[in-house]
């Protein structure tokens, strides 16, 4: 993969612009996701300001949609945050995957570029880096474009969501589950994922009635992880 002669890894403004332009068109598709999130957030009792602040600061469709499941009464912070963490394990893996290049940057630049890491710009940057493009600006710029449209979509959702009538007409109500489904299928690497998936699905469904809200997901994630290790070492 990398060796001492590998070209220098950089983070430049030109790279940021290139990343933003390159992922701009795809980023537009985060607007309907944002609208779906904003609308769902209002329905769950999150205020407009809170929803927009959340999209801006958390910038993770998966974590934010998952959090909505917990958003009632006194917030069950621990199970909510554990679920956000479990959802975020994807990001840990992505960061580890990019580490051979990222870790050649000075730490402050690395921590800055990673603040907008997400599925889409990860996939884009990973293939670019493997083609010997060495500018991490592509990751940062792509992430900024995605985050911008995510926040714009959220704002549209919280402001206009209620006035758009039944969003089911546009199928927006299935955006969240379809998105999670696509990530699950996208991560699927074959036989070894069968056992963890079955365990996770079973624990999640059984836990729906047996556990406090949200804990079924946390427990299912851990059980699936353990199942994966058992399969790995069988």
């Amino acid at each position: 993969m990398l060796n001492a002669e590998t070209p220098k890894v950089q983070l430049t403004m030109a790279g940021v612009m290139k990343g933003a332009k390159g992922l701009g068109p795809i980023s537009l598709f985060t607007i309907p996701f944002g609208i779906a999130f904003g609308t769902a957030a209002i329905e769950r009792g999150v205020t407009s300001d809170q929803s927009i602040v959340m999209s801006l600061s958390v910038f993770s469709a998966a974590a934010q949609f998952a959090a909505l499941d917990f958003w009632e009464g006194p917030l069950p912070a621990i199970s909510l945050l554990l679920t956000v963490l479990a959802v975020g394990t994807r990001l840990i893996l992505m960061g580890a995957t990019l580490a051979p290049w990222l870790n050649r940057l000075p730490r402050p630049k690395r921590l800055l570029a990673l603040s907008v890491l997400s599925d889409v710009n990860f996939a884009d940057s990973y293939s670019a880096l493997r083609r010997d493009e060495r500018d991490i600006g592509r990751l940062a710029g792509g992430g900024l474009a995605l985050c911008t449209f995510w926040v714009i979509g959220t704002a549209i959702g919280v402001i206009a969501g209620a006035n758009l009538g039944d969003l089911g007409r546009f199928g927006i109500d299935v955006v969240m589950v379809a998105f999670f489904t696509s990530i699950a299928v996208g991560q699927w690497e074959g036989l070894k994922d069968i056992l963890p998936s079955i365990v996770a699905a079973a624990v999640a469904v059984l836990g729906l009635t047996l556990l406090p809200p949200g804990w079924n997901i946390v427990l299912a994630a851990v059980a699936g992880g353990i199942a994966g290790v058992l399969w790995h070492e069988r």
């Binding site: 998952a66 893996l93 991560q187 994922d193 996770a200 699905a201 079973a202 290790v229």
Partner: peptide, 18 residues
């Protein structure tokens, strides 16, 4: 193996619940 399976599992769990 644990991290990868957990990453898949959390998505599957959310979808299965839904």
């Amino acid at each position: 193996a644990f991290l990868k399976s957990m990453a898949v599992s959390v998505m599957v769990a959310i979808v299965a619940s839904a």
